[in-house]
Amino acid sequence: MIQQLTLLFIGGTEIVFVLFIVVLVFGADKLPEIARGLGKGMRQLKDATNDIKQEVAKSAKENNIIDSDTTKEIQEEINKVKDDLKDFTGSLKRDR
């Protein structure tokens, strides 16, 4: 069985076609600049997201919104339910 590259419901041939059109429109000499700009933009977005997460966590800690003992207890309960569910569904699953 041949598996195709699938990215966001786009097959390999569609990706190649889109890249071909991009090369035709922008030219091969502009592609590194475009890729570099996209990479920098994605990096800035990721850094900004991480900064926001850190600020929210810091603010929550300072205001005692997050109780680590409570969150640990909740996580333990969630893990117990997951384990019970795995045990239950394990007997129902069929091998492929």
Rank of each mutant, 00 (worst) to 15 (best):
I10K: 04
D51I: 05
T13S: 07
A35Q: 08
N79I: 03
G41P: 01
E77N: 14
E55A: 06
G37Q: 14
V18K: 12
K72M: 11
D51C: 02
L92Q: 11
K61M: 12
I21A: 12
K53W: 06
T71E: 15
E77Y: 12
Q4G: 03
D84K: 07
I52L: 14
R36G: 03
V16P: 00
E14T: 12
T70H: 12
T6G: 02
L24H: 07
I52A: 14
G11S: 05
K93A: 02
D67G: 07
K61E: 11
K61L: 15
Q54T: 14
L38S: 03
G11I: 00
E14A: 12
V22I: 15
Q4P: 00
E62G: 09
V22A: 08
G39W: 01
G41S: 09
K93D: 02
D84M: 08
D29C: 00
F9Q: 06
S59W: 05
R94T: 14
L38N: 00
A35N: 02
I65H: 09
R96P: 03
T89S: 03
Q4V: 06
V81T: 09
K72G: 06
T89Y: 11
R94N: 05
I34A: 02
K72A: 13
L92N: 05
L8V: 01
T70C: 08
K93E: 06
A57L: 15
A35Y: 04
G39L: 04
K30T: 10
L45T: 13
V56K: 10
E62K: 15
S68P: 08
F26Y: 11
